[in-house]
């Protein structure tokens, strides 16, 4: 499948997604925080299933805003207006029929700064299943264990599941947040610069975790770090001033970008 997208800044770009199954799609999304000031302009993108997609771009380009549209976290902001279409599995997530809680269960999120709840480790991971109605302790135990194993944290914390999550190191806390998102058995995991506040070793560990998760989950990661995007992602989208400049397979985008702007950015001429 080949699509052509008209973009206001530049000419169209082409993305080869013929081998992929598309899970998430946006069509002509416009977003204003303040009336008449567009933060996202006419964004159209298709996210392939069970792949890692990275959003890169200079600060304020709207990559985090776009990410937050996918689980409607932007809804909370007063005065916001969103136009266009965003579908997941072909269903419009902004339609009145969509249950917000269901959507967020399906689309997990990991934030820039780790934000474990001030509770025990077990309680943190079990939070999602619990609010979604699971009451059976054994079932919760199983979910917690599997989520922690997937997030590569089980070995480190299995003996102290009741200890406060706040006693963990920064990297461990972020992996706990990943585990917490995984416990809901989401289809998509949104990661908003998950390693930006971490040291290189912890970052490496997070990246390894992402690598292990790619088989089973669709991951969309926002990052400032181009090397990170290059290392972990299958596809990369480059955004600027609220517009989607280029979206392509990572190997292609970093080695042979179609756009001059993209090339300038990845070679460090601005940004």
């Amino acid at each position: 499948m080949k699509i052509n997208v008209q973009n206001s800044i530049s000419a169209s770009f082409t993305t080869d997604l013929s081998k992929e199954k598309i899970i998430l799609e946006t069509k002509n999304v416009d977003l204003c925080y303040v009336p008449q000031v567009r933060t996202l302009t006419n964004v159209s993108i298709q996210i392939p299933e069970k792949k890692v997609t990275a959003f890169i771009g200079p600060s304020g380009c709207g990559k985090s805003t776009l990410l937050r549209c996918f689980n409607r976290m932007n809804d909370l902001i007063p005065g916001i207006s969103i136009k266009g279409l965003i579908t997941i599995d072909g269903i419009d997530i902004y339609s009145p029929e969509t249950k917000l809680e269901e959507l967020r269960k399906k689309v997990g999120m990991v934030f820039q700064k780790s934000n474990p709840f001030p509770m025990g480790i077990w309680e943190n991971v079990a939070f999602g299943p619990k609010v979604n109605g699971i009451r059976e302790k054994a079932e919760l135990d199983e979910m917690v264990e599997s989520a922690l194993i997937q997030a590569d944290l089980w070995k480190e914390v299995k003996d102290r599941l009741n200890n406060s999550a706040l006693d963990l190191s920064g990297g461990q806390q972020q992996r706990l947040c990943i585990a917490r998102a995984l416990a809901n058995k989401p289809e998509i995991i949104l990661m908003d610069e998950p390693a930006s506040a971490l040291d290189p070793i912890s970052t490496n560990k997070i990246e390894e975790t992402i690598d292990e998760l790619r088989e089973n989950y669709t991951i969309i990661i926002v990052t400032h770090n181009m090397q990170q995007a290059a290392r972990v992602s299958d596809y990369t989208a480059f955004m600027m001033i609220g517009e989607m400049i280029e979206f392509n397979a990572t190997s292609k985008l970093f080695t042979n970008p179609e756009k001059k702007l993209t090339e300038d950015y990845i070679t460090g001429r601005f940004g």
Binding site: K105, M109, F111, V131, N184
Partner: peptide, 18 residues
């Protein structure tokens, strides 16, 4: 109460009251 905590909870599918 830190906004990041409420965001985390909402992002996990908890309702406002939860």
């Amino acid at each position: 109460v830190p906004k990041s905590l409420t965001s985390a909870s909402l992002a996990l599918g908890a309702s406002k009251w939860q």
